[in-house]
Write a protein that binds this DNA or RNA. Structure first.
Lengths: 134, 134
DNA sequence: AGCCATAGTTACTCCAATGTAAGTAACTGA
DNA sequence: TCAGTTACTTACATTGGAGTAACTATGGCT
């Protein structure tokens, strides 16, 4: 393993050992790891700007409540911005901030890893299931 | 944004739109995003090989049950391997597989991002909290 | 008058993840 | 004889994230 990664490993471990309620990775994973945030970020990254109901239609299966909740926490974290138009019927547009766009990069890395190693993981699961059944 | 990323973005969106229950990123996030998996992987990555109680002491706050559950799912996914020694009292050693080690790399990317942008996120939260209180 | 649309909110339920506490088997040292 | 060790398992309680459905306000359309 490269020297850089060795140094980072030490650091990551130290942070999470001593400071476990304030570990930034845990914090970020709590956001990104929920059911809808990542999908929302990806949709906005792909389509640029979207209205509430456009997102609702695009993200298959999300309820109105979960969409508002997800959008609110993403907005609170500064990952997207809301633009309201004072008109009837209401119109609100959502767009990723540059912070939100920058999150797409590490997400991509994770996507690459997941995509590359999914077959290995599925094989391991199948094998484990068989071993447990024996 | 670079061409490579644009292509990846299209792909990630397509996968998650059409195939939402089999999106590999969601699957991986479900594992990595839980409360203890990432910490366990990091500890093992840092220390190489650890016994059950060594992990228990190292991961501050984890219960025995959660440690066994976490280790079992990580093992089922092929991210770590168990080595049992048939002796009394029992001795079991846990080590990351190469698959598990490879997961540390994207985790590092996420860590870098989280570390770099945490101040911005905290600032956004503080600002949002104030705006809501008004 | 009645229905549709937008962008939500409110009040509930439900379930899976997590936590707590105790029990298990086999041996060791005091 | 009895506590201590290791690596768990089992049963039960709790909690927070997610789901469902109904309700809100305003105006346009028919």
């Amino acid at each position: 393993m490269a020297g850089y990664q060795k140094i980072m490993k030490k650091e990551i471990s130290k942070k999470c050992e001593n400071d476990r309620d304030d570990c930034p990775v845990k914090d970020v994973l709590n956001r990104v790891g929920d059911k809808w945030s990542m999908l929302t970020v990806i949709m906005l990254s792909d389509h640029g700007t979207l209205r509430f109901n456009e997102l609702h239609r695009l993200i298959d299966g999300i309820s109105q409540r979960m969409l508002t909740v997800t959008l609110k926490t993403l907005e609170a974290d500064g990952l997207l911005k809301r633009k309201m138009y004072q008109q009837i019927p209401p119109k609100v547009e959502y767009t990723l901030t540059s912070l939100g766009e920058s999150l797409v990069v590490p997400l991509m890395t994770l996507y690459d890893w997941a995509n590359a190693h999914m077959p290995a993981i599925k094989a391991a699961r199948a094998k484990f299931g068989k071993a447990a059944a024996t």
